[in-house]
Structures are given as structure tokens and as C-alpha cells.
């Protein structure tokens, strides 16, 4: 396979190998926390932060960490950063922390993060790993943002807490509940596949 340029390494996570739309990873937080745009954004940024930092470390020490215990080592590294993120959120933006609930700690087992360490950071240099992590994180964040925006707008009539729909708009209660998350995500994935199919054709 041809070596990817730096830009391609970064961009692939946003569309071609998007963790949610294409790889279908990390769906649990995706479905659970995206009731409001604010939550989606915060979740995405927290995950991106963890991804970036752990990719950096894993890539840096990839030659030092013995193969047999690499997963354990990754988990410890990831867990450390997740805890950092969790505590920071709790300390500085307690409201968001409260609404994200257990899903920030659950980033530890988010397949996207462990997956990138295993599939990419442990095999590539620091620069590339950072680009990859940033791309993936951004892809994740963007999808979460879109998903949560749709759900917040339709389900609550607001966006980032601002009233943006017309006066008589009736909230679609289902959108702020679990079924709404599945419906919206399904539509997004279908849309992405449709666009890809059209691009290929």
C-alpha cells in the first residue's frame, strides 16, 4: 500500500475511516450521551484528549513496552488520562460531568482508543500517531456533535441550550430518549454509506 501523506493520515479519521460511521466503534457513549450538543462536544473532546495523549505515550514507548503486556500497559496509560479528564471535568464543568455520568470513565474501554493504540500508535512514529489520533478524535467529535445537535434540536428544540426553533415547535420526545439515538445514528450511517456509494460510482 502506498505510504500516506501527513495530511491523508490526519484526514482519514474524519471521513474514510471514521470511527463511528465506518468502523462502528465506540457506539455505547455515542448513543448514550448525545442527548445535547454540549454533552456530545464534551464527550468528543474528552475522548480526543485521551486519544492524543495516550497515542503520544504509546508511540513514544512502543519499542520499550514488551509485546506480551502491551494491552495492560495501554490500559494503564489510557486509564490515567481518562481519570485526568474525568477529574478536570468534574472540577471545572461539573454540570457537564454530571450529565455525562459514567461515560467519561468508560472511555477507558472505548474501542476507538484502545484500537488506535493497537492498530496504529504501537507501529508508527510519534508524529504520525499524533496526526492519526487527532484525525480519529476529530472524526469522533464531529459525528458526536452532529448526532447530538440533531437530537437536541429535534428532541428539545434547543442547540447548546439556546432556543432556536420557532415558538410553536413541539419537541419530539423520542429523540432525547434511547430510540432517538438509534434512529439518528442509523440515518447518519446510512447517509454516509450512500454518499460513499455515490462517490465510488
Amino acid at each position: 500500500m502506498k505510504e500516506k501523506t501527513a495530511i491523508q493520515e490526519f484526514v482519514k479519521g474524519i471521513w474514510d475511516e471514521n470511527p463511528i460511521l465506518v468502523q462502528l466503534l465506540g457506539l455505547c457513549p455515542t448513543l448514550a450521551v448525545t442527548t445535547a450538543a454540549e454533552n456530545g462536544l464534551a464527550m468528543g473532546m474528552a475522548a480526543t484528549f485521551v486519544l492524543l495523549c495516550s497515542s503520544f505515550l504509546v508511540s513514544m514507548f512502543r519499542k520499550v513496552i514488551p509485546g506480551q503486556v502491551r494491552i495492560a500497559a495501554y490500559i494503564v496509560i489510557i486509564a490515567t488520562f481518562v481519570t485526568i479528564a474525568d477529574r478536570f471535568l468534574a472540577a471545572f464543568v461539573p454540570d457537564i460531568s454530571k450529565s455525562l455520568g459514567p461515560f467519561i470513565p468508560l472511555i477507558i474501554v472505548n474501542c476507538i482508543i484502545l484500537g488506535r493504540q493497537e492498530a496504529f500508535a504501537s507501529k508508527n512514529g510519534i508524529g504520525r500517531s499524533l496526526l492519526d489520533a487527532l484525525g480519529m478524535g476529530l472524526g469522533f467529535t464531529l459525528v458526536l456533535l452532529v448526532l447530538s445537535s440533531i437530537r437536541e434540536i429535534l428532541g428539545s428544540g434547543t442547540w447548546f441550550g439556546m432556543n432556536i426553533m420557532w415558538e410553536s415547535f413541539a419537541e419530539w420526545g423520542v429523540m432525547s430518549q434511547a430510540p432517538g439515538a438509534f434512529i439518528t445514528l442509523g440515518c447518519l450511517i446510512a447517509g454516509a454509506n450512500w454518499i460513499n456509494a455515490r462517490r465510488k460510482a
Binding site: 513496552i65 514488551p66 494503564v76 496509560i77 486509564a79 481519570t83 485526568i84
Partner: peptide, 13 residues
């Protein structure tokens, strides 16, 4: 290696 990682991580936390 594992000890080091956990110790550092513990310290940071």
C-alpha cells in the same frame, strides 16, 4: 516496565 508505568501513572493521579 509495567511497574514503572503504574508508578508514574499513580504519581500523576
Amino acid at each position: 516496565v509495567l511497574t514503572l508505568i503504574t508508578v508514574i501513572s499513580g504519581a500523576v493521579l
